[in-house]
Design a protein around this nucleic acid. Structure first.
Lengths: 116, 116
DNA sequence: CAGTATCCTCGTTGATACTG
DNA sequence: CAGTATCAACGAGGATACTG
């Protein structure tokens, strides 16, 4: 319905963000290189995520007809634009994250106290 | 592990964003007022979402000891700060959303063509 | 190497019913 | 009014095995 809600849904996906960050920070990457940068992503989810990002015009997928296969992923201009937005948000999170964590732990403590 | 990832996870939640937007746009709101603004959220999910946001110090929850009960929710300063970040992102989405939608539909078309 | 195909689990969500 | 409690369903996501 709402277009913004639609975009946010795709963007807010954990794996999408990590993939974009990976490509944004290192430029062109092969499948397993990116997988290694992200670390704890399954092969399946990386494939799905990359296909979605490609369908949205955020990354390009270049296949080199070799054996063994070589596929490289890279942010498009649109992808870089999004990356910059994410970067802005990351700065906010870095600055305000500790305060949120502080409140969150304080709330947890209350719960623990109730149990005890 | 990563604190940013942690914050993003909470922020990227669909209902959290909509609740923050509701409170950001209308100021102080009662439970059912907010529920109505959001529209398609279940009572349960609104309760859960608001509790989480409260625990993170993003909103305040004020109970007025009356019958029937009256509870008001409002963004904290931290919540407003986050709201501004979301606003920035919304602007980006408004500007670039159509392009993403365009690519996405084009990709869907290809898939449909393959099936046909 | 870069996937695809399958299965299976686990968490999130929604519906429903009840309450201070 | 503003919840809480419970349950059931659904789908995202992980593990594994196979392939061009």
């Amino acid at each position: 319905m709402c277009p913004i809600r639609d975009i946010v849904a795709r963007i807010s996906d954990k794996w999408s963000v990590l993939a974009i960050y990976g490509l944004g920070g290192y430029g062109k990457l092969r499948f397993n290189e990116l997988k290694h940068k992200i670390g704890d992503i399954s092969q399946r989810m990386l494939t799905v995520t990359l296909r979605n990002l490609e369908a949205d015009g955020l990354i390009t997928r270049t296949i080199y007809p070799q054996v063994p296969p070589r596929v490289e992923y890279e942010l498009t201009e649109l992808g870089h634009s999004l990356m910059q937005q994410l970067q802005l948000f990351a700065e906010w999170a870095t600055k305000n994250g500790p305060e949120i964590i502080y409140y969150r732990e304080k709330a947890n403590k209350v719960i623990k106290d109730r149990i005890a």
